[in-house]
Design a protein around this nucleic acid. Sequence first.
DNA 1: ATTTACAGGACTGAATTGGTCCGATATGTT
DNA 2: AACATATCGGACCAATTCAGTCCTGTAAAT
Lengths: 146, 146
Amino acid sequence: MLRISKLTDYGIVLLVRFAQEASGTTLTAREMSEATELPLPVVSKMLKSLASADLLASQRGSRGGYQLARQPEAVSVAEIIEALEGPIALMECVAAEGLCDQESHCGLRAPWQRINSAIQTTLTRVSLAELAADTPPRHQTTLAIA
Amino acid sequence: MLRISKLTDYGIVLLVRFAQEASGTTLTAREMSEATELPLPVVSKMLKSLASADLLASQRGSRGGYQLARQPEAVSVAEIIEALEGPIALMECVAAEGLCDQESHCGLRAPWQRINSAIQTTLTRVSLAELAADTPPRHQTTLAIA
DNA sequence: ATTTACAGGACTGAATTGGTCCGATATGTT
DNA sequence: AACATATCGGACCAATTCAGTCCTGTAAAT
């Protein structure tokens, strides 16, 4: 299916949320959980990951929380994905040489690398800011019925 | 890691092998297993998948085997991936509407779809023939030592 | 008949993913 | 000092997915 993991997806949703706030706004895990309707433990986990990848800055203690470490224009989707799930590599052999034991007699490594870097470029060109801009404003338009 | 599955990878390796033969060449699962050094059950399984996706044509019985169903120029990498692991979709919500229960309040679907289709286009533009051409000829250059 | 090969499954073990929970630490408030 | 609020850094577990095997049936050629 060529998909990114759900957790990574959540991470991006969270970052987009931050990008939609005024620059420098600090938000807690609880607040983010409420805003995104994602379970607190999950949000908490992902915020920690994002912080340790230096995409978010964290502040501990009461009055603590998280904020974007950089301007949303300066963060690419590729970077986020790489931070959360490692190098963008369609298959092992693309990530690094010597990982695939078929390498000697397969010969597909070169073409795959070209394809892979095209995809990587695509994802590098999209910034968090663009994602956030594209996303409709957050006020509730319709409520679930029943 | 944004990767395709190993099995899909094997499938592509097999197709490339066919593409390197003279057009219309029939090969058995056993022959393919030997050529690629992949275990026969795996090769067998993947050839069956490829056949049922109409990427290969199969012939039963003695003197049977598989051959490319189309010219390698007319088969795209995107098509192969889709045949083996379903629609190319970075995340559920891209594959079809209504799959993600966050859809109403997430708003990232549109931007993701643009990104996704860029990737899809990239993969559509690469043909099996190109993969095969890129791949060095198959004679053994070095042998594993010890 | 017998042999060769594909068809279509079921099945299993291992790895990954998605998600929860807990104890420790830092920081502001009273 | 004590307390409340938050993050930090794990361990942990259930469920799914993945990779790989195997078996029974059917088609075709000799």
